[in-house]
Write a protein that binds this DNA or RNA. Structure first.
Lengths: 246, 246
DNA sequence: CGACACCTTGAAGAGGTTCAAGAAATGTGG
DNA sequence: CCACATTTCTTGAACCTCTTCAAGGTGTCG
């Protein structure tokens, strides 16, 4: 469903500090205009693209919240990440001209559609755009590394602490609270992302509550002791994580 | 240590099907020449770059074998990947102008140094180069997703099977055996990469041997039953992996 | 040849999973 | 707006995989 969207230029968008054109000069910003061909609304539960689907565009999230899911032929399935306003999704599709994951809206959302071929045209003139996309992709790689660290060398509590802090951080960078959080995803989705079962997620939340780190009411989370959370995420408790030897 | 390397143009390099310029036209290939400013030899155990170090160049591996390691201030440490000839490392450094991981040679190696600013100059003329780097970065992202799947939803046996098949696949794509493998890394490094302890890696190898899947002599591995390995990597054994529900 | 790094294997223990049941939210249709 | 069905979340108890600790074996390199 393509909507006859009200045209909003990048230059007028509140997100342009966070989103695609961040780093472009004011002058270049105007020339970015034709980059966004349309905007598209996605209802909660609907997919923006699915794996196997032909890659045509990158998407900048204007509003709403997404998850991206990896899946394999044999039915393995995992949430690879959660994306919020100002972030770019679809980068995985560039290599093979096909998307390799599913993007699902966890709440009603709107995205800016940026056709990749048009993007390359524009970048021929606005060369700073290339640099910017390199940075975006590089950032994605570094982020994935963070997830690898979570999955590979943290125990359950540490993963959840680190995950919550990450969400809070990104939310705060967008001008929202640093201590309060509405989870847009289920315990199962959190678990899938962090490589643990939904029961473990739930139990870990409960433990944090008992210890006075959090206040949790279903999807509503309030941080009571940020330092302790941080410490959990940062200080391997002798347990699971390998520490540097060489 | 910069070596007064014998200049070898991309066009003459045996790897140009796998490496940076793959996908470039023969004509463009020549113009890629000035991309590689120098080559650099790295002895086994030496680092090509370390986290925090200023990012200047991408590196194409001409020969040898590397590991890349993530580490955090608090001493957490993890092998994020292993790289072989024809692969590009350093992409993580683009975002912040600083490398975010260490690259260590696991055997004597040689890399082509590609200064990033020079790269951007050349790409201004050879525009196909931009597209190519997008693809390389996108491939990196997709690969990282594979690792996330391994770490997040496979059990120890499945991880190791999947890991070995991946190494074999990449090796085979370079014209080497599909069933025999010399491991360049220790059990500890494999474990670090796969989120398991070295003892578990060792035990799992032993189990594969008992079951007739592999023949293992220290670093030398021979696959006896590739199908069974594949089945392990592909068919979640009811155990740990989440399967698609929605 | 001897020192050192690397690998294997065993036994005990911990962290997380599985299975199960019930409680709390959310959504639906009358 | 309320009753009901459904989804989501919580909690308990038994079990299992992987880790931890420990000791001995194997290979490698000066």
């Amino acid at each position: 469903m393509l909507h006859p969207a009200i045209k909003v230029a990048c230059i007028d968008c509140k997100l342009h500090g966070t989103c695609m054109p961040s780093g472009c000069s004011e002058h270049d910003l105007e020339r970015l205009d034709p980059l966004v061909s349309t905007r598209r609304k996605i209802r909660r539960g609907q997919t923006l693209f699915t794996h196997g689907e032909r890659f045509t565009s990158l998407y900048a999230i204007r509003s709403g919240f997404f998850k991206t899911c990896l899946s394999t032929e044999d039915g393995r399935y995992q949430v690879s990440g959660f994306q919020m306003a100002g972030e770019i999704i679809g980068l995985d599709g560039i290599v093979n001209d096909r998307h390799s994951c599913d993007a699902v809206a966890l709440e009603d959302a709107e995205v800016c559609v940026m056709p990749f071929d048009r993007f390359e045209e524009i970048a021929r003139e606005v060369t700073s755009l290339h640099t910017h996309v390199y940075k975006i992709m590089s950032r994605e790689i570094v982020r994935d590394h963070t997830v690898m660290l979570q999955l590979g060398s943290m125990r359950a509590e540490e993963r959840l602490a680190s995950f919550l802090l990450n969400l809070l951080h990104r939310q705060h960078a967008r001008g929202f609270s640093r201590s309060e959080l509405i989870l847009r995803m289920t315990r199962e989705e959190i678990g899938s992302h962090l490589g643990m079962k939904l029961e473990t997620v739930s139990r870990t939340f409960s433990k944090f509550v008992v210890e006075g780190l959090l206040q949790v009411k279903h999807r509503h989370v309030r941080v009571l002791n940020a330092q302790a959370l941080q410490a959990l995420a940062n200080h391997p408790a002798h347990g699971h994580g390998a520490t540097h030897a060489a």
